[in-house]
Design a protein around this nucleic acid. Structure first.
Lengths: 200, 200, 200, 200
DNA sequence: AATGCTCCAGCTGAGC
DNA sequence: GCTCAGCTGGAGCATT
């Protein structure tokens, strides 16, 4: 007993507790940092929630993303069936899905995107460039020349946005979150263009 | 003490506990019912998750919906700026938002939807009907004649889906959830058309 | 098309949604009821949180209870080892646990409670009765004659409490929750007898 | 436009996203570390859940602790009233609370702990030492000479445990978590000394 | 600003 | 052995 060789157990216990507490503290600190960052984002005029959404998406694995999108497609199909499609037409994926014959169901890796046939990567790049040009020439973002379902449509969008982001304005208006002008919660001018009641 | 007028307190206590337990039990029972329902849905070949999504949306208040959509718009704008728009072009709302002049920011209730100018409720109804006809004539869902951004586009979609839902097939293929054909999780043929790994 | 035999799918979809919404609504209603009940309890002068605790305990299975208590014992032993035992001496179970020889660990169902040897159910009943008598004779609840670790101690407690509950006062003082006399959160007279800041 | 001074907005956006992702990653890493630690604890023969409990307690503010203990007291009183006191006699605080006159309710900072009158810090220290001595002399932990309610009781416990922790055994048996010897869930020898079904 | 509630993710025990 | 449902703890949100 002179040299209690295992007050060690108690020491270990103490050490475990210390380590646990330290780890929890670090986690808490990170929470603080994240909050600070969100504040900074808000202060900069951007929308933290939207950014978080993007971060979450980027964190998804391929299969998670697939599942999520797949579910969303089905939801859209159901909405259409129920007559709930309210100004948000079917997405491309849902559209493509509906156009399949029953027996070519999933698995069967057929051409997939039905129409665009001959669209190449260059076409895409071209569309992007054209979006930039169109912006420079004063066309509006609503004047995308490509039809929905055409992959070039998104590319043109990107080009237009890219150009619009480098035009000298400090923050493009649409990027900014509108001022918190406490909108009367009783009349959200429902359905028109709401703007936020920032907390949901 | 013959008539302890307030063993009542203890009785009350007991009663409170009983009531609480009963309520909690009922809640638990409902959880069970919901699970059963989901099983039934799955058994019927529909996707419970997608249905839940719809239910949730329908439960939203106008302002919640507004906020959610608004956040999504901004996220899309950010994605465009980052070059992440991957085949999913800008939604109408985001597009409309980007087309505004900085000074007509939100609040100012100007015409809102920019272009469609003269589109009336009748036009919408007509588009819906045309969707039904087009389905009957064998056109594909991808052949929606209306341009994105045009509200008639969604109406046509609805019409097409409504018609396609009453054509005699028992469950339209696209409604069904594909068989659980254990997709190799290593190769979700990412981006193509995944189908689900239903649990996510 | 005259007799779309399977607008049934859409009908089913609609029905599923209805049922889901109904179930969720019922659940929500129950939440409301529970809240009302808590309000009622508070209004009656009892402590809803404490009651919830009891309800939760009663809902536990034997094995859950066993596990919970076992964990608590170990926590107590650890606390003792760390010198954290702050006026809350070791519980009986922990005490009993510490007194075992290593090799008679658990499983081995030996006499278990070490000392009380000859205490019978009648002794317990007697102790309970004595608690009632002692209350009637004006003894204080702190004057429990049984030593800790003796099962009769709890029985006496129960008897005393039972008697004290039927003495004509409408709600025994200790049952009541003290008025919300906004205690200065800066000086909770920490450690003495705090009373609540009810939310925690 | 030669030096688009505010592709800066997009750059900022990118930066915000990077920072957010980094912070979230660090948090996730910490979760991993915590899990590793728990595994280590388990491997060492100690009970992670019990340790977590201690860590949580230590993290509590004074007022949180006060509230928690207060609620527990009331729960005990209610249990007593309901005849649920199952071998776990009233705690000191509850006992003290019950012994008050209605009008000296809380707030009024009267002597509080009723009896112990003259017990000093030295008495406490003495009791602790005596616990150590008693352990050395072979007394059992159940032979605590102090009556429940007496603060020296806990001190003696601590002393006894401290001594028992340095006696040369590597891990005192009671510290260890028993092996996972799949206890028959039908007969947890409920109420005796259960040992764990570790997860609850 | 603080607290209570709701939702979600991560973990744990059961079942094929 | 792996997946699945259930649960518990934490984070976000609404409210006062």
């Amino acid at each position: 007993m002179s040299h209690h060789p295992n007050a060690r157990t108690t020491d270990q216990l103490r050490s475990f507790i210390d380590r646990l507490e330290r780890l929890r503290a670090e986690k808490k600190a990170l929470d603080g940092d994240i909050n600070d960052l969100k504040t900074e984002i808000k202060g900069f005029g951007l929308n933290p929630k939207a950014i978080e959404k993007i971060v979450k998406e980027r964190a998804e694995t391929a299969s998670q993303r697939a599942t999520r999108e797949y579910t969303e497609e089905q939801a859209q199909i159901y909405r259409a069936a129920l007559g709930m499609l309210d100004g948000t037409p079917l997405g491309d994926a849902a559209r493509e899905r509906l156009s399949r014959k029953p027996d070519e169901e999933d698995g069967a890796e057929q051409p997939a995107t039905p129409a665009p046939a001959a669209i190449t990567a260059e076409d895409i790049a071209g569309a992007r460039e054209r979006g930039q040009v169109d912006f420079a020439e004063g066309r509006k973002v609503t004047e995308n020349p490509y039809v929905a379902g055409d992959p070039r449509r998104a590319a043109w969008d990107e080009g237009w946005c890219a150009a619009s982001g480098s035009d000298g304005m400090d923050i493009p208006a649409a990027f900014r979150r509108p001022e918190k002008k406490k909108p009367d919660p009783k009349d959200p001018s429902d359905g028109e263009n709401p703007g936020p009641d920032d907390g949901g």
